[in-house]
Design a binder for these strands. Sequence first.
DNA 1: AATGACTCCAACCGCCTCGCT
DNA 2: AAGCGAGGCGGTTGGAGTCAT
Length: 304
Amino acid sequence: MGRGRAPCCDKSKVKRGPWSPAEDLRLISFIQKFGHDNWRSLPKQAGLMRCGKSCRLRWINYLRPDVKRGNFSKEEEDTIISLHNSIGNKWSRIAAHLPGRTDNEIKNVWNTYLKKRLSNPPSHDSSSLPHSPSPSSSSSTVDKVNNAPLPPSVSPKPVPPPTHNTLRDSSTSTISSVSAQEYGSVCNFDPDPFPGESLFDLLGPGSENTLGEVDKPYCFLEDNNTGMELPLELDYDFWNLFDNLEPTRPCAEAMDACGANLWGEEIQSPGEIAEENRNWLRRLEEELGLEVSEEDSSVPRDDL
DNA sequence: AATGACTCCAACCGCCTCGCT
DNA sequence: AAGCGAGGCGGTTGGAGTCAT
């Protein structure tokens, strides 16, 4: 039954490969607002040029608020090994015993590490294992494929993706991350709703994605409802950011759709968000003495 | 510093299962 | 009961990052 059916979508008309932050935002926003009753129709409704299966996979393995990132504990490893002994490669069933872990992640951990460990029992303790906390293990907080920050739980601070550069060094002030404290010092809303955490990372201009399209620049917002850090597409010319602040409706609507709450205040309308966003950025500019040189301002707009 | 080998993991592919008609 | 379509699952792969030389 159901065999030999047609492909789930027209491969020639859908985007493939790594997801851009803007796509993630779109998917998150849509699902938070409308749920995912029908994966097949979701991409079209959400305005994504993706296959429904791809959306489902991205959501389940990566964007879901309850997905747990980071290293596997000894207990989790033992659970995997034990369950694998009894039921084999039933990754989804194993995942059911590990809240927050996805079948894909468990499968990867098994294939890349646990299987090898079992066939070559280590003589050293677990502190040297590849998944143990180490500088390189910070990779667990970053999507290595598209360099986007992982949304939930483990990572308190997104790592600026290299493909979406921080403010260029040639600008008179280089800011890769605006801390909550810095943010609080320049806004008159909630001084620091998330003490000690980076609240708002301003990133650089958009860069080409795998399809040769140019992603818009984006920043990160922490969603008060889910605690997730969401990439927010900045729908204005980044290189005029500090000269002529014009957040547009799509920007504000994206924030609204996420339930993003920058200031500890309930967001009322896209217009208000745009206005507050504009005010905040203006204060940031003044407080931190940001300037954009003529040269920087002349970056071709066509690239954005 | 350059290069090749290796590792890791997100994403894809194709098949299977389930539910609806 | 049979056909169909959507969701789910497990195997595999591509490519970015890291390490070794």
